[in-house]
Design a protein around this nucleic acid. Structure first.
Lengths: 322, 322
DNA sequence: CGGGCTTACGAATATCGTAACGATA
DNA sequence: TATCGTTACGATATTCGTAAGCCCG
């Protein structure tokens, strides 16, 4: 059994059982992978993939278990490399952050500015995507951190730590009927078409919840993944914008109405893969992003097995609101 | 990085940093290991072992972490093989049991008799040793199960499940002053020299505890690891024997006095390595040895992280006493 | 000076890529 | 018929064992 063989079966599965695509992605030849997979199967005396003729069609039950173990093995191999790098060049390495537009654009810039100043030799890569893509990217070990507001809790292999709460604001053009309202209510908003985040993004579910609770079916006429696009369409008069308060700039030419009393606040979390070795600078990144995530606290959280236990750990900690 | 390299560094550590001994044990050449170790160090860019001249003297801090990850990796590699074997030949394989003389001689024979009848193709190996040796053997993956009464709880990487309680009896020659006593007390025993298990074996600590609590310093004149030897010396008139009740045969020519009211009962447990894949026949072995250890219960225990949680799981289960 | 690690070197083996083949949808 | 996996084969690397060298206790 070779590590490469394990790598191959994992990657073949990650590429929907398409060996050619896998080969291309790994910069190697397709027959090479094919042969190694077969050799592993021969050695173990069991099929990992089912074949119809010469196409891989599905993963056998045994294959599923084997691939799960293989993934864990490869993760630990990465950890060994990380340990070595930690000792040889503690301030050098790579940091891959998977996150949504909202975080990348509004929450992270200051943190990252400070971080790259302290660690100029760490090369930083931002991967934008949907919350689902973000989570999977971390689970598969392609990125180190997931930062998002939704969907992260669905993955059992992620350790998720709460970072901060945030609220929404309503934005309307200055000549809009709502512009000069004194106390905004959900009834006011419900009278107008709404422009907001696409479903599954940036705390969208809290918005739907509030409308449902008030007995409204919101007239969402336009959705986007990010506040910048939403603002553009609010400017065009498409409707009332509902965006994260932190996405509002000083010099925006809108009327901004706080809506923290209307919608429940959302929680942004940072997550990483269970069992992965964290470099010193990764601990430092976390504490920069969320000051309460001190190294001892994070290390304590790593020890825990269930999300429920992690949540309990943070019960008494007051999270900032932005 | 190769699996073999990881195997080598782990084994070199297991052989007290003696590469030659490691090579002999692994049936390979010493220079081969030496070279692979060095190549791994070169690849990682870090020393795993410290050398004084050409001798390996100690493990570096980084090396310790790397070897810990390597051990986990190798364990999972074994799990992959076990998964494959489980599917190809569910009733065939190996079962290595590490245990003490007491268990091997008195508790296990019936279980094993039934087991080999059901699984004639599973080759069974018994490894006798001290509780410490037993635990280490399982931790290192040399054996599948540890069965013992003491010391198992000290190892964090073992999952330990309680099996049964047992009590002690006092044995004396038929012409001994204690032979015809009606109600045995600790004061009676304390008047005589004692022959019992060696320290660290077979619930020896409960014996010492009872004497201490009663304010006695027991006059232990002879100790052994097993009841057979103890019996021999009791026969010679060396003193009063205190042994596990289950170690008494029908046809022993002793006067046997139950001592369950004098010494706290001891608990025998079965343990296996965290994260190891258990074959079907291993689950079956456990349930044969301790009927309350059903597969669902064991699987639940495997999920838990801390010994305290495991103990809680067994709180409401009544264990047999033998 | 003896046990024990490293270096050197050659034989056996494994890996990987190209090219040709075969099967499925 | 096009896409995709398998087989065949040769060039290149890697591994492993033997033999010789060297260092510490």
């Amino acid at each position: 059994m070779k590590l490469q063989q394990l790598r191959y079966i994992v990657e073949v599965l990650n590429h929907n059982l398409n060996v050619s695509a896998t080969a291309e992605n790994l910069f190697t030849s397709q027959p090479g992978i094919s042969k190694q997979v077969r050799m592993l199967e021969d050695e173990l005396g069991i099929q990992i993939f089912e074949r119809s003729g010469k196409h891989l069609t599905k993963v056998t039950p045994a294959g599923k278990e084997i691939i799960r173990y293989s993934t864990e093995i490869l993760g630990k191999v990465e950890s060994i490399k990380a340990v070595a790098n930690q000792y040889t060049m503690p301030d050098q390495g790579t940091l891959n952050i998977a996150t949504t537009h909202t975080q990348a654009r509004y929450a992270l810039p200051d943190v990252i500015k400070g971080f790259i100043k302290r660690y100029p030799k760490v090369s930083l890569h931002m991967h934008q995507g949907t919350p689902t893509q973000i989570s999977e990217s971390v689970v598969k070990g392609k990125t180190d951190f997931a930062i998002a507001t939704e969907a992260l809790h669905l993955y059992q292999d992620l350790i998720m730590l709460p970072c901060y709460h945030w609220n929404r604001s309503v934005i309307v053009p200055k000549d809009h009927p709502l512009a000069n309202i004194k106390h905004l209510t959900i009834d006011d908003i419900a009278k107008h078409p709404i422009v907001t985040y696409i479903f599954g993004f940036t705390g969208r579910s809290e918005l739907d919840e509030a409308f449902n609770a008030a007995g409204y079916k919101p007239d969402v006429v336009f959705t986007a993944t990010d506040a910048d696009v939403i603002k553009t369409y609010v400017r065009l008069g498409l409707g009332v914008g509902v965006i994260a308060t932190m996405a509002i700039n000083e010099d925006d030419d809108f009327c901004v109405l706080d809506a923290s009393h209307i919608f429940k606040s959302s929680l942004t979390s940072i997550g990483f893969r269970k069992g992965s070795f964290l470099r010193d600078y990764m601990y430092d990144f976390m504490v920069r992003f969320a000051p309460h995530l001190t190294r001892p606290l994070v290390e304590k959280a790593i020890q825990l097995k269930y999300t429920a236990e992690v949540n309990k750990l943070f019960e008494d900690i007051e999270l900032p609101t932005r």
